[in-house]
Amino acid sequence: FKDYGQPVKRKKGPAPKMLGNEVCSVCGDKASGFHYNVLSCEGCKGFFRRSVIKSAQYSCKNNGRCEMDMYMRRKCQQCRLRKCREAGMLEQCVLSEEQIRLKKLKKQQEEETARTSAVMTPTPPPEMATLDPQQQEMIEKLVAMQKQCNKRSFLDRPKVTPWPQSQDLQNREVRQQRFAHFTELAIMSVQEIVDFAKQLPGFLELTREDQIALLKTSTIEIMLLETSRRYNPTIDSITFLKDFSYNKEDFAKAGLQFEFINPIFEFSKGMNDLHLDEAEYALLIAINIFSADRPNVQDHDLVERLQQPYVDALRSYIMIKRPNDHLMFPRMLMKLVSLRTLSSVHSEQVFALRLQDKKLPPLLSEIWDVNE
């Protein structure tokens, strides 16, 4: 409208969006939208609609000369209604309360019909995932390799320093025996991981420097993955070599800190909830080893190319095994991200052990970059 005279007709279609700084042409309050061809606030819209529908009779105490603002719009409703009409409010556009209710009901029915139609419309079945012969052969080979490596570690079990039966926490010899027991188990785990990595298709194609870089940073993460698959939720403990079971207190007795122990058990519980099988663990470990973003890796492109077949195989395998769980694949990859955090906590634990004057064996010192 112009100069608050006759309203300017607006083209059909949605109302223009407000810029946020307009004011109501009737009461001077902040406007919120177009209504009956005129810029006005919600208060004026509702007031005009109620007044017209109910044929309200108002009386002005100032002979109709009230100046409308945010205060006077409530004090003199006769002048406010007059101002509304002058500004272009159209009575023929006003809906009664019943008409508004019926309009909302009709809209709800239309939305419900649309939702029902969408549910009833059959969707084409998703394309079934399949493993090609090369992927199937690769997965079977990975599982067999892991079993063979585990078998060799099991045969070395008698070489591990026995866990002391004494409960004396102050005895230095007993504490050293517990620490030796854990470090020897860790050495066996590292050797198992190295043997597995060397048999992975493509690993020996890398330079020796890149092989060492990948193993140094992935070993602790793979050890934690292997630890999680040995977690027993019934007794809240972790079992190594089928016979050695340890709870949180046992880890603490060996010199580890609860700041490192608790995250290990939390991660193990989360992995246990996924109910992964041997093939899924083997593929996750292979993906973890071939991580091109590791420090000191030179040939990033080759490492990424070597990793991709394992990622594709894991995705297809999950789609076949869990066709209704579309989030399992990203959940499993997110566990690899969690391992990065645990790896950082492990570095802090290694530093704490050094402060306690606990000397790590040469193999662990080398692979964890501990400078004695």
Rank of each mutant, 00 (worst) to 15 (best):
P361Q: 12
E259G: 05
R10M: 09
P263N: 09
L39E: 01
R101A: 06
Q307L: 07
K103N: 10
G5K: 08
L169V: 08
I212H: 03
K248G: 10
T123G: 13
Q146M: 11
P133Y: 03
G33R: 01
Y58M: 06
N21P: 12
Q109W: 06
I193Y: 02
M70T: 15
R65A: 10
E86G: 10
V297L: 06
M18V: 13
L327N: 15
Q92C: 13
M271Q: 12
P14W: 05
G255F: 00
H35T: 12
M18Y: 10
A352Q: 05
R175D: 10
I139H: 00
A56T: 14
R85P: 08
E304R: 06
S96G: 14
A213K: 03
F154R: 14
S166A: 15
R230W: 07
P158T: 06
S51H: 09
K335E: 15
K54D: 02
E184K: 09
A56L: 12
A87L: 08
D312M: 07
F47K: 02
C60L: 02
T130K: 03
G255D: 10
P126D: 10
R208L: 06
K248E: 09
P323L: 03
L241E: 05
Q134G: 00
P201A: 05
N21R: 08
L364I: 11
D156G: 09
P14C: 09
K242T: 14
L224Q: 12
L225E: 00
M188Y: 00
A252P: 12
T123C: 06
D132T: 02
P126Q: 08
D3P: 14
A15T: 15
E259H: 13
E205H: 10
P122R: 11
Q165C: 04
C66V: 12
N371C: 04
L327M: 10
A56D: 12
M70C: 10
E137V: 06
L276G: 04
L342K: 01
S117W: 03
K83E: 06
M120N: 14
P233M: 08
A282V: 01
V194L: 02
V160L: 03
P124S: 07
A118D: 14
K248H: 01
A279I: 15
F196C: 04
Y36L: 08
R85T: 13
K269T: 13
R340P: 03
R305D: 01
W163A: 02
A129D: 02
P164L: 01
D325Y: 03
C27P: 00
T217M: 05
L142A: 11
A180Q: 15
A87V: 12
V52D: 13
I193M: 02
Q146N: 13
G64I: 05
P263G: 04
N288Q: 13
V174L: 01
Q170Y: 11
K83C: 05
S117V: 02
Q177D: 06
A282S: 12
H35L: 11
Q307K: 07
Q165E: 14
F244R: 05
